[in-house]
Design a protein around this nucleic acid. Structure first.
Lengths: 223, 223
DNA sequence: TGTACATCAGTGAACGCGCGTTCACTGATGTAC
DNA sequence: TGTACATCAGTGAACGCGCGTTCACTGATGTAC
């Protein structure tokens, strides 16, 4: 009975199977790791941090409750993988924004801020895992590397502003905190639905104002 | 046995009993509502959002598992009460900061920002309940009133800045979002331990820089 | 090309646990007369 | 001041549930010869 139920569940999601002509999947999943991560994100998006469970992820991936242990060990392992994706996605989104923003350092920094917020709103589950209070394996190497990459993109964008070369390091740090705080706060409040902004147009306007002012208020070094 | 255990638990927290000479508490608690709220906050602080449960709150208050239902109905009710406290405390803290900051509108706004962050760091559990993803009864009248009070303090402080009378309403809204985002983001990142700031001194310096710049960059209306 | 075997990736039953909630109950308190 | 009674605020046993994790197992795959 169990096997049949699994097959039915899988058959309802065609196109996920790797190889194998028919819609049926074989005993092995193909890419359970990936499927569990996706299930986890969907679950978090649907039920929030409270509703997350490893068993439900397994259920959604069409797999027995004990299967996830082979890939992630435990729930923290899966959440850590999702958080890593979150940092990586953030870095990629910021990278892309920089490329599209042209050569002006100001425009680039502004674009990074916009990309940060857009990413948070597009992937609320990932964002909440990264910056929420769920248990993560903070010692995980992949997680730390992804976090560092995202962090350094922001730092580099600030350092590239005119006149910043002469800014002392701890002052540069404080400026990074300032810029990051603004953008991060906006993302959090927007995600929580706390912002007193009516429609998406209001929000876009406020967002643009915010990123512009963040750029403008970063002091130049040589004054 | 149950009753005895309860008595022992209560006896270990002297001074909580209302009236009654001896350390023993009677059948009635005295102020269970308050005790449950405090237990909830401690629990959240200790175990985070994940570790919260109504039963554990009852246990810590030295009371049976079914007692909380008399006061809060369910877990969401207790969390809503904590969130209400959070907004009220935030409003009170900001109020106090304004009073101590003197007459200058700039200094007042800056003080409000500092008070917001200080409150978040001093009451992480409340702050996380207010702005986290835990289920709350958003229709609760007390909660809505407290939220409104806190929100309007910030709005009033911004409106009191020189030249702001002529700023159109939607632009004022966007400015409020800007100021709130900066301060809120700083508080969130600091709570999550994400800020690359070494000690409390670093943090205070960054905080001061942040609130100052927020104030300076709010545009005047009459230009 | 065939065969033996190791390894990988899954199953499914079982465990013990803590949870929220319900229920009939009872001790303590307050109020009317 | 005393008594009857309503109401309030708790008890504790019981329920069914979903959870994470363990365990012996087995089907599928890959590799050595």
């Amino acid at each position: 009975v169990g096997t049949k139920a699994v097959r039915t569940a899988r058959a309802s999601k065609p196109g996920v199977d790797a190889g194998a002509g028919a819609g049926e999947r074989s005993y092995h999943h193909g890419d359970l790791r990936q499927a569990l991560i996706e299930a986890g994100e969907t679950l978090l998006a649907e039920r929030g941090v409270e509703g997350f469970s490893l068993r439900e992820c397994a259920r959604r991936a069409g797999v027995s409750a004990s299967a996830p242990a082979h890939h992630f060990g435990n729930a923290t392992g899966l959440l850590t993988a999702i958080a890593t994706l979150g940092f990586e996605g953030l870095a990629v989104a910021m990278q892309r924004a920089v490329r599209q923003a042209g050569a002006s350092p100001q425009a680039r920094l502004q674009a990074i801020g916009g990309a940060y917020i857009a990413y948070a709103l597009a992937h609320p589950a990932r964002f909440r895992v990264v910056f929420g209070s769920l248990p993560l394996d903070r010692g995980d190497a992949a997680l730390a590397a992804a976090a560092k990459r995202a962090y350094e993109m922001l730092a580099a964008a600030i350092a590239a502003l005119p006149g910043r070369a002469s800014v002392p390091q701890d002052s540069a740090k404080a400026d990074l905190v300032l810029a990051w705080s603004s953008v991060h706060g906006f993302a959090c409040l927007a995600l929580d639905g706390q912002l007193p902004l009516g429609d998406a147009k209001d929000r876009t306007a406020a967002l643009r104002k915010l990123t512009r002012q963040v750029v403008e208020r970063l002091p130049r070094g040589n004054r």
